[in-house]
Design a protein around this nucleic acid. Structure first.
Lengths: 341, 341
DNA sequence: AACCGCATCCAAAACGTTTTGGAAACAAAT
DNA sequence: ATTTGTTTCCAAAACGTTTTGGATGCGGTT
């Protein structure tokens, strides 16, 4: 049914070769022929068959993005925004974006392997890097293009874009102590995730810089969801000596923490300080607005994607490792200087 | 570099045809040969070249999902959850999911056309249907498979999954009046979106059933974001006679409304009732928890995807139009019966 | 007249699969 | 001895493109 090169060739009385070359503006085709071919192609509504092109060129013009996510009900605003950044950039540069989800674990690598071997994608975007990340190890080993949002502990350097969240958290910790807080809790996430590792580390050091030791009993391990943050905060606030400040390692858990505090009858930003990390859109519009560290997720998505495509095309990439500087966003949830308690 | 059928054929001393047929378990291949071919294929790490398969079979095993979204900073939890439902189902049934974003408008149709003509996808998932939806018109016309989340006003029926949000809103309106509210405002969204149309309609009728006329001056038109809901709510609450209840047509705007009310010193659920629609995860964990109408977005994603794939495969679909019953989720944000003001 | 350079064209191969339409070998039935 | 049927195999075509390696003709130089 659809129009092929052959159809055009027959119509204009030239060979398929010539038609193809005319459409690609090769200079061994006369201007008149080019003109003719182009006109007829447009008239007939020709669109090249992508699969045939891809087969022939041995590339897919597709980049893969496998969301490492558990269970059905995931809804991290992070992902949709990052996805938009990657997707739009990919489209702009002529690439498709192939998305799937796979819970982290055993079969994850199988997923990647399958996509690589069956020529389904030209490269991968990796997110939620882990301290020891088998995905990155695998792709490095077989020398398959990828760019990660986040670093790993693997000594072999790989291309990445990341924010220096260690620094961000250090600044935040400084800020909390400067406001007068002493009993400070931290809601972390599983330590094998690189970014929570950095954030906890930065927080701990930031407190230490001001002479405060982060008590291990004041560290909760959450699952990055609102519900998770809520549960841990409830537990922290039920203690005989509850913290006066709680820093969560992402905004979603911070929002849960706010709910927990309000349920305890506390006025957030006055009776208790709560902070997050990410600066998701919600952070600005919750009540009270959340003090957090900004992370330009959409832009990071763009950068990662652009870098990946450059690598795929073997173009020159001037910076293979990009570390962005974080910026503190002080809002009402951490209040002014502490006075009571 | 990668292993092809030809490589296997040479190794086992059979033809490419036989190898292909052996791997597909055709019964004109002897058990011994099958066994041999399979073993060697596994040994050599054979994975079929997808592009070649697709070219030959004239299908892509890919479904398209074009997010109709404006600007960079979009972050509707709706999308990520729906996406997960669609994506996981697609993967389970052996399909790829091709995602891109395109702002609604002129070029949108071009996007679809291009993907159709170049054989990039076998079908589309459509979301955010509009009263007069050119995407659906186009795809129906050329008889290209698609399934929509949402209905349209086009008389020609198309396959869809939708929730009866008119009913949901009617119940919600009943509930608010039963709590004693009289001055009630509604935050809608642009009327060309089918779902906001239904929701406004249902709300209006629900009030009418209880003898209350929804005042046009009490209807704001938002952009479905938290920020938008906030702005409209601020305006409503600044009036000399502010509403005692505000119903937003989605949760995100309801959350913005809560912020606005709190900024006005109101205790939500006590001084004012606020309701949403969708029951996004955030609705449960904000403060106070949001009264809303549940919409099983992940499951709808699954259903839409499953239905689409059945249509692509020309399998029997017993229900082409599925309308789900909504269920009210009463939480604290609308409080008990109204007493003050 | 022979050669060269140039402009324009194209047949055939290649990418890796699946499908089509038999062929070959053998056993069983007539 | 021929036919019929069964089992197992395969060459070749097809999907629609791009690339390779010339071929052809023509005007201009020697």
């Amino acid at each position: 049914m659809p129009v092929t090169l052959k159809d055009i060739a027959e119509k204009v009385g030239r060979s398929v070769t010539t038609v193809s070359r005319a459409l690609h503006d090769y200079d061994d085709v006369s201007p008149e022929t080019k003109e003719l071919v182009r006109r007829v192609a447009a008239e007939m509504g020709f669109t090249p068959n992508i699969m045939a092109q891809r087969l022939q060129k041995r590339r897919t013009d597709t980049i893969g993005f496998i969301l490492p996510t558990f269970g059905p009900r995931f809804s991290d605003p992070f992902f949709s925004e990052f996805l938009a950044g990657v997707g739009n950039t990919a489209a702009k540069l002529g690439y498709d974006l192939l998305v799937s989800t796979c819970p982290p674990g055993e079969q994850e690598l199988e997923f990647y392997r399958e996509k690589v071997q069956s020529y389904r994608v030209d490269g991968f975007v990796i997110v939620r890097t882990r301290r020891d990340d088998t995905r990155i190890k695998y792709l490095s080993e077989i020398n398959f293009p990828f760019v990660a949002f986040g670093r790993t502990e693997n000594p072999a350097q790989h291309p990445y874009v990341d924010e220096d969240s260690e620094l961000g958290m250090r600044l935040l910790a400084n800020h909390l102590v400067d406001l007068g807080h002493q009993k400070i809790a931290f809601i972390a996430a599983p330590d094998h995730l690189m970014f929570t590792h950095y954030r906890l580390k930065g927080f701990r050091e930031g407190l230490l810089e001001r002479g405060i030791l982060l008590d291990d009993s004041m560290i909760g391990i959450g699952d990055l969801t609102q519900r998770g943050g809520y549960a841990i905060a409830m537990e922290l606030l039920d203690r005989p000596e509850p913290p006066t400040a709680i820093a969560a390692c992402n905004d979603l858990m911070a929002l849960g923490t706010i709910s927990a505090a309000q349920e305890h009858g506390l006025v957030v930003g006055q009776d208790i300080a709560i902070t997050g990390f990410d600066n998701i859109p919600l952070a600005e519009h919750c009540h009270p607005p959340l003090t957090t560290v900004h992370q330009p997720i959409y832009q990071i998505g763009e950068m990662v994607c652009e870098m990946l495509i450059k690598r795929i095309r073997r173009e020159f990439v001037d910076e293979e490792q990009i570390l962005l500087n974080p910026s503190l966003v002080i809002r009402q949830s951490c209040g002014g200087a502490i006075t009571r308690r």
